[in-house]
């Protein structure tokens, strides 16, 4: 999307965890074969088979983000209880639409899968993640197309500024390159299922990075992924866009209140932060 008027004001938040994953279609298919567990009841294989490829990539990215931030979630604990989650998939449900369309032509109304709506709609990923991490704060989908990441940031940062949330997961996903689907709805074997996740918390919480956001409507998936890829190598990454910017800065001094996670550090194993 574009914007013909700049929005003033910068928003600062702590970046508790983040990840970018790029999974092959084959890897994503394998994720359907074993139950997945985080905070709540595990997702059974009978459910996983209905999940969109992007949903599975997102769940993998969440694991990576938690692991990368040394955050270990004990089963049965609810560290994200009052958080929120917003998710911006790109063309979610297209891969299911293709075979469903064929079955509709062949079999009529009874050929349409009842799972299309719960599992393949714009709200499906945020709903799934809220269930997966036992998040009882707001959950909703944002965007839905290629410009979804910019919409996600606009929606996410305005939510953080106006709701008393202890944290917010922002999630974007897509199939890339998106060069078309076969008759079963499968993307080409050389395509990746990609997902980006960010866990934002109040700036006062101990986090490795701080994020500064000045509303901009032009952040792309590639730009943010590239930023994250270089985040560990430099003290500051900044994305200057028309009308706004997005900056990630490593904190030099960690101070402030702690989150009550169980953290896993290389030196000491699990410990309470």
């Amino acid at each position: 999307m574009t914007l013909s008027n700049p929005i003033s004001g910068q928003i600062r938040r702590g970046l508790l965890a983040h990840a970018v994953v790029r999974l092959t279609v084959e890897t994503v298919s394998q994720m359907r074969c074993a139950p997945l567990q985080a905070c709540g009841e595990p997702f059974a294989v009978s459910s996983l088979k209905h999940f969109d490829e992007q949903t599975l990539a997102v769940l993998h990215a969440l694991h990576e983000a938690l692991r990368g931030a040394n955050l270990h979630v004990e089963p049965g604990t609810l560290p994200f209880r009052n958080w929120g989650v917003l998710a911006a998939p790109c063309y979610l449900g297209r891969s299911a639409m293709v075979p469903s369309m064929s079955r509709f032509h062949a079999e009529g109304a009874w050929g349409v899968s009842p799972h299309m709506i719960p599992y393949r709609s714009l709200h499906s990923i945020s709903g799934t993640v809220s269930q997966y991490l036992k998040i009882h704060g707001p959950n909703y989908g944002v965007g839905g197309g290629p410009g979804g990441l910019s919409e996600l940031l606009l929606a996410g940062f305005s939510l953080l500024e106006t709701q008393p949330l202890p944290g917010l997961w922002l999630i974007a996903s897509r199939i890339h390159p998106d060069t078309g689907l076969d008759d079963n709805g499968r993307p080409p074997a050389d395509s990746s299922c990609e997902a980006i996740v960010l866990a934002l918390v109040p700036e006062s919480v101990v986090t490795p990075y701080v994020v500064e956001y000045t509303p901009t409507p032009t952040v792309s998936f590639e730009q943010l992924a590239e930023l994250f890829d270089s985040l560990d190598k430099v003290p500051e990454c900044r994305l200057l866009c028309p009308f706004g910017s997005l900056t990630f800065r490593r904190k030099l001094h960690l101070h402030g209140p702690h989150l009550s996670f169980t953290a896993m550090t290389a030196a000491t194993g699990r410990k309470r932060l």
Partner: peptide, 9 residues
């Protein structure tokens, strides 16, 4: 000229 965002819950 303002922001435009689609949401779905």
């Amino acid at each position: 000229s303002g922001p435009a965002v689609t949401v779905s819950a």
